[in-house]
Simulated scan of single mutants.
Amino acid sequence: MVGSALAACCALAAAVCAGLPRWLDGFVLCRTGAELVNATGSELDKFVGRLAYGLFHGERVKTCGLGGRTSRFSIFSELMGAIPAGLHVTIIFFCSALIVFSSVSSGFFFFNAFGRPYETLHGPLGLYLWTSICCVCSFLVVVLFASEVKIERLSERIANFEEVTFVFQTHGERFDVCFWSLLVVFFLHVLNVAVIRLAGMNFPMLWGKDSDPSGGAADLMY
């Protein structure tokens, strides 16, 4: 039951985080405006805007000395030509896989708690399989998004999209609550592996047993 609850929480957390624009919170400097007036020190604050986004949409506040301009944007309808689209779609794919396999893992945890483990996919080995897939997916989501932000300079790409007059550069950025939640999801799935190991000691499947000669027909049903 503990493993089922953890896996269900992971699936819910991943689904919620995927839709929220709280993956990164950053500051962008209007370099063009700052250079025009030779702004230094505290004067730079007048040229620093905000940027927050997630996998699908976000918000930016561009400040170039004359107040901020707030705008919302959608990644897929507006920015696909400006961002590394292949990498971004890959992140969404693994995030979707994480949601699906976390749900599957939760179901099999529940089945093994109240049902009768069946061969490889329904016994402890199956739980190891589903949980390991969840671990890999959550780890890849975190690593790939961090790479997109730091290596591909995603914040600057978004800030400079369709800008002709001004040039913006990253002034500071930090990963937000959704990113860290996905990292927590990864560790929760790692914890689930430990739960399987402890609970699996009570399952005959963990130590192996002789196959039932009539199991061939049952195999086809699964």
Rank of each mutant, 00 (worst) to 15 (best):
C64M: 06
R197K: 09
A146F: 07
G68T: 02
L198I: 13
A7G: 03
L121T: 04
G123D: 07
F111D: 06
C137D: 13
A199R: 11
V37F: 10
C178S: 07
D219N: 09
F179T: 06
G216V: 07
K150H: 10
V167D: 00
P124V: 15
S214W: 12
F168L: 05
I91E: 02
W130R: 04
L87W: 05
L12W: 08
M80H: 02
F186I: 03
V177W: 05
L44R: 15
G49T: 07
G54L: 03
H57A: 13
S181N: 10
L220I: 14
F161M: 09
F56G: 06
A11I: 06
M201N: 09
V28W: 06
A15Q: 00
S4D: 02
G86N: 04
S211C: 06
D212H: 12
F175V: 04
E43K: 14
S138D: 03
F168K: 05
P84N: 04
G115E: 03
C135V: 15
R116S: 12
E152L: 11
G54K: 09
K150S: 12
S103N: 00
S102P: 04
A13S: 14
K209P: 00
T170D: 14
A194C: 14
A82D: 10
A14Y: 00
D45L: 14
F110D: 02
S77F: 01
R116W: 07
G68P: 01
P84G: 01
